[in-house]
Every structure is written in C-alpha cells, then in structure tokens.
Amino acid sequence: MKVEVWSDIACPFCYIGKRKFEQALEQFPHKDQVELVFKSFQLDPNAPKQYDESMDEMLAHKYGISVEQARGMNEQVSAQAHEVGLDYHLDTAVMTNTLDAHRVSHYADTKGKSKEMMERLLSAYFTESKHVGDHDVLASLAAEVGLDADEVKQMLAGDEYEEQVIGDQQEGANLGVQAVPFFVLNRKYAVRGAQPVEAFLGALNQVWEEENPKTKLDVLGPDGAACTDDSCSL
C-alpha cells in the first residue's frame, strides 16, 4: 500500500497529523507493506526568509485579532501536540519560507533518508525553534540524519529540486489538495487533516481489505451432514 502525504514543514497540524498516522500505522497488521511518501506543499510560497515579528504577532495581524488572542490560539495547538507526545514552542518558532527545507527533503529522498529528514525538519521547527530556511542550519540537520553536509550546502546554493517541490504542489492541486496535512492512500481514498488515530487506522484497514479481498468464504448457517477424508458426520 502506498500512502502519500502532502504537508508543509511550517504547518503545526502536519506534524500532529504525521504523529497520529504513525501511531495508527503501529497498530496496522500490515504496516511492513506500507510505503510512506512525503509530498511538498507550501502554505505560503511567497513567505520571506526572515520575519521581523513573532508567530503570535503575525497571526494577530493576519486575522485582525489581539496578540493575546493569537497566543491563546497557539497554546491550544500546542496542547493538541502535547496529546501525541510533541513539545511545541510556537512562541519562539522562527518563521521562514520553507522552499529550501522541502528541497532538502527531496534530496534526502534520493539517499533513502526522506522519513528521517522530514521528522528532523519538523522537530527542528516546532520544538527547537531552529531557522529551517538557513542553509547552514539545513546542512547541519541533514548531517544529523546521515547526509553529507557539504553536498547539501552545494545543492542549496543552486536551484536543484525546486521543480520537484513545485511539481508536488501542482500534483496535489490536481488531486484536490487545498489544505494540509492531506493523506492519499493508493490514489483511491484520502484523509484530510490531523484526524484521530482511529480514523487513520480505519482508512488503512479499509483500503487493505478492498485491495486484498479474502479468498476464504464465509459459511452461512450451522454445519450440516458432511464428509471429510477421514470420516462422515451424521
């Protein structure tokens, strides 16, 4: 089974949804046969690399609310993250454009490190308040998951994997991805948002059962007189 996940590194519910999906996958009997693929999505492709305000202030300006109200919103999100074992620090998060972080994710995929890189990027942004738009920071994070820091810096100096990031977003748009996280299972079903673990597990089971119909028949009614190789029951 192939599960494609459209997400953004700066999306708080993407990390929460990722963790909930992983918890569901641990309960799925066929988890070893699930291929997980991360797809790029930028909530704001035009976001600057450097912000002069905090996340609380940015949300206050964006939604026309007070900074205190924005802080309350972030605290609610942090509480949801805590429920799945994540320690958010949105008050000190360093907002940035996520294009380069997504490019690193694509590079990591070519080295078989996509899942490790995505986890490291999300953790760096939401729990460690690292600047995931800074090339030195990205190279350091990549090195932590076993990638060559110098190769990552060289890649980031150009425009490699930018087309792949844009391509993922266009592909998602064609599938109807308008918000993230967005989980696509075998290009047959989709789960939108950070759903409960039970919802993810139910989706996994449903797709598996439909893609792998059982060959053993359900026997209707009580057993009747019948014979086997050994004997006949009367």
Results as ranks from 00 to 15, higher is better:
residue 155 M to K: 05
residue 77 V to A: 05
residue 106 H to E: 10
residue 82 H to I: 00
residue 64 G to H: 10
residue 153 K to L: 14
residue 96 T to M: 10
residue 147 L to G: 01
residue 96 T to F: 12
residue 127 T to V: 06
residue 224 G to A: 15
residue 68 E to T: 05
residue 189 Y to H: 11
residue 184 V to M: 14
residue 95 M to L: 15
residue 167 G to L: 09
residue 189 Y to W: 11
residue 59 L to E: 10
residue 94 V to I: 15
residue 164 Q to P: 00
residue 175 L to D: 10
residue 146 G to K: 03
residue 168 D to C: 06
residue 234 L to K: 14
residue 111 K to S: 02
residue 142 A to I: 04
residue 99 L to I: 09
residue 99 L to Q: 07
residue 41 F to C: 06
residue 92 T to K: 15
residue 63 Y to N: 13
residue 140 S to F: 06
residue 88 Y to C: 01
residue 119 E to D: 13
residue 76 Q to C: 05
residue 128 E to S: 12
residue 104 V to W: 04
residue 122 L to H: 12
residue 152 V to S: 03
residue 113 K to W: 03
residue 106 H to A: 08
residue 165 V to Q: 07
residue 223 D to T: 13
residue 36 L to I: 11
residue 32 D to M: 08
residue 38 F to M: 13
residue 186 N to P: 00
residue 24 A to W: 10
residue 54 S to M: 11
residue 74 N to D: 07
residue 214 K to I: 02
residue 72 G to H: 11
residue 234 L to R: 13
residue 95 M to P: 03
residue 135 H to R: 12
residue 169 Q to A: 14
residue 222 P to T: 11
residue 59 L to H: 11
residue 49 K to H: 14
residue 136 D to S: 11
residue 176 G to T: 02
residue 45 P to I: 06
residue 16 I to R: 06
residue 92 T to D: 12
residue 166 I to D: 12
residue 79 A to F: 06
residue 174 N to L: 14
residue 114 S to C: 09
residue 78 S to W: 01
residue 208 W to P: 00
residue 3 V to S: 06
residue 193 G to P: 01
residue 212 N to K: 01
residue 153 K to S: 13
residue 80 Q to P: 00
residue 158 G to K: 08
residue 228 T to A: 12
residue 107 Y to L: 15
residue 136 D to G: 14
residue 77 V to G: 06
residue 35 E to L: 12
residue 189 Y to R: 11
residue 50 Q to G: 00
residue 53 E to K: 15
residue 138 L to F: 04
residue 173 A to Y: 10
residue 123 S to R: 14
residue 65 I to Q: 10
residue 170 Q to M: 13
residue 80 Q to W: 07
residue 24 A to R: 07
residue 116 E to V: 00
residue 126 F to R: 03
residue 204 L to F: 05
residue 11 C to D: 10
residue 182 F to G: 04
residue 201 L to W: 05
residue 116 E to R: 01
residue 160 E to F: 07
residue 16 I to C: 05
residue 199 A to E: 13
residue 214 K to W: 05
residue 211 E to N: 08
residue 30 H to A: 10
residue 19 R to H: 07
residue 35 E to R: 12
residue 150 D to P: 00
residue 42 Q to R: 13
residue 33 Q to H: 13
residue 64 G to N: 08
residue 19 R to E: 14
residue 139 A to M: 05
residue 147 L to S: 02
residue 71 R to P: 00
residue 97 N to L: 09
residue 43 L to T: 05
residue 126 F to D: 02
residue 210 E to V: 01
residue 165 V to I: 07
residue 65 I to N: 09
residue 112 G to C: 04
residue 88 Y to K: 02
residue 225 A to F: 12
residue 99 L to C: 02
residue 208 W to F: 08
residue 230 D to W: 10
residue 36 L to W: 09
residue 116 E to M: 06
residue 174 N to E: 15
residue 154 Q to M: 12
residue 126 F to Y: 10
residue 189 Y to D: 07
